[in-house]
Design a protein around this nucleic acid. Structure first.
Length: 801
RNA sequence: GGGCGGUUAGCUCAGUUGGGAGAGCGCUUCCCUUACACGGAAGAAGUCGCAGGUUCGAGCCCUGCACCGCCCACCA
């Protein structure tokens, strides 16, 4: 029985189970059908659902359900990313809680622990996905560490290597002196700290004076290899090319010019220490400077005469040394942002280290072509420009990580330092034939494997039926912050390995901000718990609210929008309750027999076309808006009010049309609010199939312009005028049922309306009398103004009787 | 510092090539009308951030300014 109040509680879980159990999410290759593939970003295997996922799924599932109803063979692929660093961190914390550590148990045991942990606790997020009603084919769950997937990663690496795009090189990376490992940018946290900026004089080698340099890290002075100034700096121009003496070590180093030096900061002169600073490293490389190190892996000083000291101790010795020689100009307080290891809060040390790199120069060309020619298109368009910019400026990609959890690089070293790269362990060194081989211990950056997601999940490198049916896909829905990390690389890998782009459209949905307009974060305490929202409002309302509010690039989370979704589902539920209880049993289809029936079918048709047009443009918010208004205003407040008494009276035609119109409305709403619509659908007579796979209506030839206009004029006239000219037939019946004559306005209101109309008429007449307007404005605008004038005159006539 | 976006009703936000300022919530008044009070009807409420400019006409286009947010890079 249908209760007066719709409660999503049990309903949603029941349909989620039913749809999945009946195989309605399944995607199986079928050459006779046209595929539609939404490439969905795989979440971290250790993650749980948050609001960002919820929005992403709402968008993807909306598209996928819509296309499924249109008859496409839909693939919505689920799975997980192994998320190298963050998963490793999770397990390290587990080990620490047990009083042991990764180092203590060793690589092999650690990896076993990760696997067994994942077996028990990993992948929970897929159940969260079910809870929001995402119609993924859950049978097809894939993991980037599956054996088959690992094989794909190996194939990709070897391919790139043999194309000459992978190389090893020393570069500067983030180094944690406590863990003695490299860290990605994502593992850092930046914090403002109080520091001291020391200004130190570097004497010119010829004894003609000095150049002053500001530094917060005097301990690195022994590794200075140059002093850099800006080429346009008038103060120092004449010094470029000469030499200075570095304090403490008393080595001579050149003064060089480089435009990466900030003119306005400090003294305008920069000490170049390539081994301990990113910018200095870049400058050093471009000027061919050496890269000596002053610090060891543990962060302690290794420079001559300072061996084993902490940086603070060394700094003090060096500064004292300078002071004695009158080289210390001043020391001042300085507050700046410093990077720390997010796990141990040790200050990060930029450090030169040997890494594997992927050269982007050639790799990015084909993706750039696709983007520039818009064969791959980002939505909204401003993200398209951003994607091109970021690809054009993409630096070489550091693909190695010194962690254990991930795809171990398929490279084998022999004792003579040769490297053999093959998908599986080779018998002997490719160069010297040595059989004493050890495998590279570094693993690949997680995004290296993510880049293969669109086809590695379909069985590549084997040529499978899945691959033939579902590659290339159609659309990729994701968030802005991984355009650089994921999108560009996915596009490249698809073009390179499959010969075709992985999809045509990339939908970048907004970032959901907290209610206060700032980014959700733990430290601000402004986060929204996705589970609380789902429990309180249900999946349909949550989906609707997230989609409804997703117009701009960044959007505040809005409970109001979700509550609106709740009202919409309740309204729909009660409208259905009226129709279901009034129209017992199955009813034959029927031609609409009255104005209001013709009108609602025309309105549904109109709304459908609007929704389709919005969805074609990936404009979800406007499509939700259209659905809300057609449901509330047109279907419920007008149509049902007008038709209600005829339903109760047993009018067969009215009943048939009402049932038909409700079915239509349910279909339009289903992609956004699948559960409530499917539930209502189950109460309708003689259903042969689930709504989820019911055919999307043909809207084409049902528009009835005459009905639309007649009803609209009726509404406008009454609302504006409060007085209606003599009516008969259908118009009179609608008027009596919906507008109700007793609400007619007072004579004073009518006078005011006459005044308003006269004003409008005067304004329109003035515009049309303006020769420049008539000459310059587009014909359609002038014509619209004329018809408005006519309408105002008609309305005025009508209420002036 | 670079890039992107924003500033419209009390709140959250729409406003499609320039052409009669909109929605939802909230508020006021009336109605427990036989689908729904998570409802219905009516209504009040905006110098469209500021200053210029283009135009017959600017929320929309141009210039400058102010403030807010996001991303990236972080000045030794």
């Amino acid at each position: 029985m249908m209760e007066p109040r719709y409660d999503p509680g049990g309903v949603e879980a029941r349909w989620q189970q039913t749809w999945e159990a009946e195989g309605l999410y399944n995607a199986d290759p079928d050459p006779s059908r046209t595929p539609y593939v939404d490439c969905h970003p795989p979440p971290n295997v250790t993650g749980r659902l948050h609001i960002g996922h919820a929005l992403n799924l709402s968008v993807g599932d909306l598209l996928v359900r819509w296309k499924r109803m249109q008859g496409f063979n839909v693939l919505f692929q689920p799975g997980f990313d192994h998320a190298g660093i963050s998963t490793q961190n999770v397990l390290e914390k587990v080990l620490i809680a047990e009083g042991t550590s990764r180092q203590e148990i060793g690589r092999e045991a650690f990896l076993e622990r990760i696997w067994s942990w994942l077996h028990e606790y990993g992948g929970k997020i897929i159940d969260d996905y079910r809870k929001i009603g995402a119609s993924l084919d859950y049978r097809r769950e894939r993991f980037t560490m599956d054996d088959a997937y690992v094989r794909a990663v190996m194939r990709f690496f070897v391919h790139l290597y043999h194309r000459g795009w992978i190389y090893r090189a020393n570069r500067i990376i983030n180094w944690c002196p406590y863990h003695e490992t490299s860290l990605s940018d994502l593992e850092l946290e930046h914090e403002d700290v109080d520091d001291t900026l020391s200004t130190i004089r570097y004497p010119l080698a010829d004894g003609s004076g000095h150049i002053a340099i500001a530094t917060v890290r005097p301990a690195t002075i022994p590794a200075d290899v140059a002093v850099a100034v800006h080429p346009d700096d008038e103060r120092y121009k004449h010094l470029v090319g000469r030499e200075v003496i570095v304090p403490w070590t008393e080595r001579r180093v050149p003064i060089i010019a480089d435009d990466r030096v900030e003119l306005g900061f400090g003294t305008g002169a920069l000490k170049v220490t390539p081994a301990h600073d990113q910018k200095d490293f870049d400058i050093g490389r471009d000027h061919g400077l050496p890269e000596p190190s002053a610090l060891g892996p543990d962060g302690r000083v290794i420079a001559e005469g300072l061996e084993g000291l902490t940086q603070d101790e060394a700094a003090k010795k060096i500064l004292d040394w300078c002071k004695e020689r009158c080289l210390l100009e001043k020391r001042e307080h300085y507050r700046h942002s410093v990077a720390f290891c997010e796990r141990c809060h040790t200050r990060i040390e930029p450090r030169i280290s040997l890494q594997w790199w992927c050269a982007m120069g050639e790799i990015k060309q084909r993706p750039l072509q696709e983007l520039r020619s818009e064969t791959i298109e980002y939505h909204p368009p401003n993200q398209h420009r951003f994607a091109i910019d970021s690809l054009e400026n993409a630096p070489d990609w550091c693909i190695s990580r010194q962690i254990w959890w991930g795809h171990q690089i398929p490279a084998w070293h022999c004792a003579d330092g040769h490297i053999t790269v093959e998908e599986t362990e080779p018998d002997a060194c490719a160069e010297c034939g040595s059989t004493e081989l050890t495998r590279e211990t570094d693993v690949l950056d997680t995004w290296f494997s993510s880049a293969l997601w669109p086809f590695a999940t379909l069985g590549w490198p084997d040529d499978t039926p899945d691959l033939q049916q579902f590659y290339p896909g159609n659309v990729n829905t994701t968030a802005r912050d991984i355009i650089r990390l994921w999108e560009n690389r996915m596009i490249f890998s698809g073009l390179e390995m499959m010969g075709e782009r992985p999809f045509d459209d990339v939908v970048i949905h907004p970032t959901v901000l907290a209610v206060d307009g700032r980014r959700m974060s733990k430290s601000l305490g402004n986060g929204i718990d996705a589970f609380e929202v789902l429990d309180k409002f249900g999946a349909d309302a949550t989906r609707y609210g997230l989609l409804k509010n997703s117009l701009t690039q960044d959007v505040r989370f809005s409970y109001a929008a979700i509550e609106e979704g709740g009202r919409l589902s309740n309204k729909l539920w009660n409208a259905a309750r009226l129709i279901v209880t009034a129209c017992e049993g199955a009813l034959p289809a029927n031609e609409p027999s009255s104005l209001e029936e013709r009108w609602i079918l025309a309105r549904l048709s109109q709304a459908q076309r609007a929704v389709e047009s919005y969805l074609d443009d990936f404009d979800f918010a406007h499509s939700m808006d259209e659905l809300y208004h057609v449901t509330f205003d047109d279907f419920c407040d007008w149509y049902l009010e007008a038709i209600k008494s005829r339903l109760y009276d047993g009018d067969a035609s009215a009943r048939a049309t009402a049932t038909f119109a409700l079915e239509w409305l349910l279909k339009l709403l289903h992609p956004a609010m699948p559960h409530v619509t499917e539930e209502i659908w189950s109460f309708l007579p003689a259903r042969e199939m689930r709504l989820i796979v019911a055919p999307w209506p043909e809207a084409g030839d049902t528009t009835d312009a005459d009905a639309l206009q007649r009803v609209q004029e009726l509404a406008v006239m009454f609302r504006r005028s409060g007085v209606v000219p003599p009516l008969d037939g259908d118009e009179k019946r609608i008027f009596d049922a919906v507008l109700k004559p007793e609400r007619a306005k007072t004579e004073g209101d009518v006078d005011a309306e006459r005044e308003r109309l006269r004003g409008e008429i005067a304004r329109a007449e003035k515009m049309l009398a303006n020769e420049r307007f008539v000459a310059n404005a587009p014909d359609s605008v002038v014509e619209a103004e004329r018809s408005k004038l006519e309408r105002y005159r008609r309305e005025l006539d009508a209420i002036s009787g």
